[in-house]
Write a protein that binds this DNA or RNA. Structure first.
Length: 474
RNA sequence: CGCGGGAUAGAGCAGCCUGGUAGCUCGUUUGGCUCAUAACCAAAAGGUCGUUGGUUCAAAUCCAACUCCCGCAACCA
């Protein structure tokens, strides 16, 4: 039994949970459950990122206190996480007192690598933020949202000296000691690392009031990323406690869009603190809607709660873990979702459970206890986060059982009175289906439990009165 | 010349590293079965593997050039 620590990116609470957040949670949860299946001791962190200007100004607009607004939204995410049946062990808010105090201690520990400097760039009053040179060029120097020309502005910032860590980070990435998955992102990150300048890690209080104060400089507030990234270790109690039992993390799950922060800023912070780097950073792709990027401006956002409502949480987990590829962007459409539900969950698996249970019941077959070793292929796919491929393997087993039923024709054996053979045949299928349940556990925990309930009983097997995945549901 | 990925049956993808009858899932058509949620099983049709050229006895696979699509490029899962 080994200690496993799994982390998810903490979402920024300035909005409702969306499909993308679900990907982080589902992948991490599946891995966590897989590790438990292997007997590991799993710590599994989730949380919310609550500081920063956007939260502050939205709260102001809504006429609620910022603390209250953050709390409400944080609760929304927690509800969402629970709805997804995520088996987390720790939930952290960046507004937690303990986290804030620990961040300040982290800052102090990093101080040999921090220096005060000036940030110089194009700034828009209306947006209250700096913009990139590229954006400046594209908009011809005028903010499209506010119709005002950008101004050249210089402000005091503290910087983290990236040069102190660049070589070590690159070495860790190249050697896979700090492994970036999928592999094709590695090159991207290494290139990016070369060009990364020192990282600004604070803002003047006048620009950013809702955040963690910089120790020793009341006019400065920590940049949200420093505060947010630290959560992975403050939740373990760092630096107040020794965290070596669970740190370094076994796997951190992040969206591809925030990979840079987790492969450059984050390791720089860790190295500055003298801590080891996480073993794996797993970056997943984005969910596309009808092959298009989901975005508020396009108005094509799908509410995950609506999707969950449609066929239930197990179907939701099923679709996103199997048909949305772990590493690349994949498409969500209602048609595909329905198709997967009907063909695979209802027809292949649900119907198999129903038909086998009914046959067992008619022939007075008792359930059995399952004792199996997970096969090598499954272990290897799961261990390398190839969840959709692992799913394909499981489905082959399901199809095999369906095929076996047709080949061995239990109904004919029953008619001919060959009860010995019938018994053997059905018992074998029950065994195989129970093992499918075992393999499904990390993905579809409720379904796995139901299979266990039906076929793992000491009594005569009984078909459930209501199919597991009824068709013609709304 | 910023970095990277991709182009294979109506759709979504695998195969390419380590050249040698082009494969999977869905959809379509036909047949079988009756235990089951009109579910299950089998078979068939459907592709000159983005374009052009090269290497080779042999190229989806190796090489070169080109065309088109897409991701990333400091706060967006």
């Amino acid at each position: 039994m080994s200690k496993v620590y799994i982390c998810t990116a903490i979402p920024y609470v300035n909005g409702d949970p969306h499909i993308g957040h679900a990907m982080d949670y589902l992948l991490a949860d599946t891995f966590a459950r897989f590790c438990r299946l292997n007997g590991d001791d799993v710590k599994f962190q989730v949380g919310t990122d609550e500081h920063g200007n956007k939260v502050f100004s939205t709260a102001l607009k809504k006429g609620v206190s910022v603390a209250e607004y953050a709390k409400q939204n944080s609760q929304k995410f927690l509800d969402f996480i629970q709805k997804l049946n995520i088996s987390y062990t720790d939930f952290i808010r960046t507004t937690d007192e303990g986290h804030v105090a620990r961040c300040q201690k982290i800052w102090q520990k990093l101080s040999p690598h921090i220096y005060a400097g000036n940030y110089d760039g194009w700034y828009c009053d209306g947006c209250e933020g700096f913009i990139t040179q590229k954006e400046y060029d594209e908009n011809h120097g005028i903010c499209p949202d506010h119709q005002k020309p950008y101004q050249r502005l210089t402000e005091k910032n503290y910087y983290l000296r990236i040069a102190d860590f660049r070589a070590d980070i690159a070495k860790a990435i190249e050697s896979d000691n700090f492994r970036i998955l999928p592999e094709f992102r590695k090159q991207e990150v290494l290139k990016l690392l070369e060009d990364t300048p020192d990282i600004s890690i604070s803002r003047p209080r006048g620009k950013l009031s809702w955040g963690v104060s910089v120790p020793g400089d009341d006019d400065q507030v920590m940049y949200v990323w420093l505060d947010a990234l630290s959560n992975y270790i403050t939740v373990l109690g760092y630096p107040d406690r020794d965290i070596s039992d669970f740190w370094p993390a076994t796997a951190q799950f992040v969206g591809k869009d925030i990979l840079r922060f987790h492969t450059i800023t984050w390791p720089a912070i860790l190295l500055g603190l003298g801590l080891p780097l996480p073993e794996n950073i797993v970056s997943h792709g984005h969910v596309l809607l009808n092959s298009k990027k989901m975005s508020k401006s396009l108005g094509n956002v799908v509410d995950p709660l609506e999707v969950i409502e449609h066929h239930g949480i197990e179907a939701f987990r099923y679709y996103f873990l199997r048909h949305i590829d772990t590493f690349t962007d994949s498409d969500f459409t209602w048609e595909k979702f329905d198709e997967a539900y009907n063909n695979e969950l209802a027809n292949d698996l649900g119907n198999l459970i129903q038909r086998l249970a009914t046959m067992c019941h008619k022939n007075d077959i008792h359930g059995q206890e399952l004792n199996i070793e997970l096969d090598e292929q499954y272990l290897s796919l799961m261990g390398s986060y190839e969840f959709s491929k692992a799913f394909d393997q499981i489905w082959l087993k399901i199809q095999q059982i369906n095929k076996n039923i047709d080949v061995s024709k239990p109904w004919e054996l029953a008619k001919s009175g060959d009860s010995e053979k019938l018994n053997t045949v059905l018992q074998e299928m029950v065994h195989n289906l129970l093992s499918v349940g075992k393999y499904l556990e990390p993905f579809l925990p409720d379904t796995a439990a139901k299979i266990e309930d039906i076929f793992g009983t000491q009594e005569t097997i009984t078909a459930p009165s209501e199919p597991l995945f009824p068709k013609n549901r709304q």
